[in-house]
């Protein structure tokens, strides 16, 4: 069954169709969340929260945007709400240990943790979300603004300043040279 039919059935209360829709989009959602949260545990938690929210709000989905984009907008807002609720001090320590865990997970798969990931992890979450949505997923400033309920100008400024911060961080670490010298031969 194609996505549109699944969505129509899900709106009519068909749980099997809903489940199929989620099953199809789950890896995409978790992959997105791991990039913006840099924490595998929180990514899983928010992915499940997103699906729960989606069950409640499916009647509001009008089909203008792709279903995966709709999931991304719900997930992003849940993540931002969660950040607001948490205390700043505790956040920093938790983020740091979660990043180390992620690094270990990546390295155990024989993949290298790059300086760009460290720099991205140190960025403010709002800037990280904007950069990932703009430069990894290719959303426009207008679309990101709609996801985050902010103006496209604010998104543009977050992306620009975020990139400058990452660039500075990479330059301080001798980033570009280090990364290119560490790349395995043949890539």
């Amino acid at each position: 069954m194609d996505e549109k039919k699944l969505i129509d059935s899900a709106k009519k209360g068909d749980e099997r169709a809903f489940a199929a829709l989620f099953q199809e989009n789950y890896p995409f959602l978790v992959k997105y969340l791991i990039k913006i949260t840099m924490n595998s545990h929180i990514a899983e938690e928010i992915a499940q929260g997103t699906m729960a929210k989606c069950v409640e709000k499916i009647h509001l989905y009008n089909g203008n945007a792709k279903f995966s984009s709709w999931l991304i907008s719900i997930a992003t807002n849940l993540y931002i709400d969660q950040l607001r609720k948490q205390k700043h001090e505790q956040n920093w320590q938790k983020d740091e240990s979660a990043r180390r865990k992620l690094q270990w997970q990546l390295e155990s798969r024989k993949e290298e943790w790059t300086d760009a990931l460290t720099a991205l992890g140190k960025l403010a979450p709002a800037a990280r979300v904007s950069i990932v949505l703009k430069h990894y997923y290719g959303y426009s400033y207008d679309e990101i603004g709609r996801f985050l309920n902010i103006s496209p100008g604010t998104v543009k400024s977050r992306v620009h300043h975020g990139l400058l911060t990452v660039r500075k961080e990479l330059a301080a670490d001798g980033g570009s040279e280090k990364i290119s010298s560490r790349r395995p031969a043949g890539k």
């Binding site: 809903f18 199809e24 789950y26 791991i34 990039k35 595998s40 990931l117 991205l120 950069i131 990479l170």
Partner: peptide, 24 residues
């Protein structure tokens, strides 16, 4: 460089989803 790092990060997440029953 950011995209390259994020591509690597994606590999942590398995491509398989949980079973349909779990979602149901």
């Amino acid at each position: 460089e950011i995209s390259e790092g994020l591509n690597k990060l994606e590999k942590i997440v398995p491509d398989q989803s949980p079973q349909l029953d779990w979602f149901e």
